[in-house]
Design a binder for these strands. Sequence first.
DNA 1: AGATAAAAAGAGTTTTATATCTTATTTAAA
DNA 2: TTTAAATAAGATATAAAACTCTTTTTATCT
Lengths: 141, 141
Amino acid sequence: MFSKTCQYGIRAILYLAVHTSEDKKLGVEQISNGLDIPKHFLAKILQQLTKHHLASSSKGRNGGFYLNTENKNSSLLKVIHAIDGSDVFSLCILGLPECSSQNPCSLHQEALKQRSAMLKILEDQDIQQIAKRIDLKHIKI
Amino acid sequence: MFSKTCQYGIRAILYLAVHTSEDKKLGVEQISNGLDIPKHFLAKILQQLTKHHLASSSKGRNGGFYLNTENKNSSLLKVIHAIDGSDVFSLCILGLPECSSQNPCSLHQEALKQRSAMLKILEDQDIQQIAKRIDLKHIKI
DNA sequence: AGATAAAAAGAGTTTTATATCTTATTTAAA
DNA sequence: TTTAAATAAGATATAAAACTCTTTTTATCT
Ligand code: FES
Ligand code: FES
């Protein structure tokens, strides 16, 4: 469903949502240790997310990555779109060139039902909310 | 969701279900033309499916690939398992080492709901049924 | 000002997925 | 019995994804 890069990106964002703020930043190394993700690879992903204004960073001493309020009000869908592109949920699940209810494949109806449900979850709740849930219910990141 | 190999495999099986039988076989070339799938690649996939007894083949003149009755009574889930392995629907969607309701990630509940629905569709209806639906409703393969 | 610690950027490597090519084997028709 | 047509098998090639390494830039602390 999601590329490994995207999985890493989502987890990194959630980790930042739980552990950082404007004045509590984390270096790549700490994040990569916390999530068990290859350090340099994670660095690339975080850079990409920062460019898309889904995470924030500051260079130099005491610098690091973090989520500001705006970042925390964003959604996981945006993270997914930034990494895997905006087609993930609109391409035919069987790889056919078109995907529409007018011209469906044999799994279209079922795929559509599920993807809309997943999409709703991913765009309706903001990252802040998910972070709160993670904290309260001790959910893994 | 599915690898390209798996998408090709599913489509090939459905194509065979609609167009072949014990005494109406098709060569790789015809199938690859019909589905617009690279010929040699498709050959590999069909060999794999034949080994798993999900398709049938006969060599030599007038040979080709086809589905016998048993093949048509199988399910798409078996096809998927034969190609992408049996973990597709049981691994954590975020790539975490475990996936269970006891130890869920932040998307587990939603992912589970959807995967069970998809699984049900994929194992409950047999290939024959899907083929009939394709035929009646002029669905793409 | 200089040293240091961090992200940013870019180049390079490895691994996996996808695709192709070549040769062998099998079967049936001519 | 020879030839043609098909799958089977194995080796190779290409492309994309995953991962690593090195250098540059920037900010902060001493
Ligand atoms: S046409 Fe295949 S999923 Fe929509
Ligand atoms: S734990 Fe992540 S999907 Fe089940």
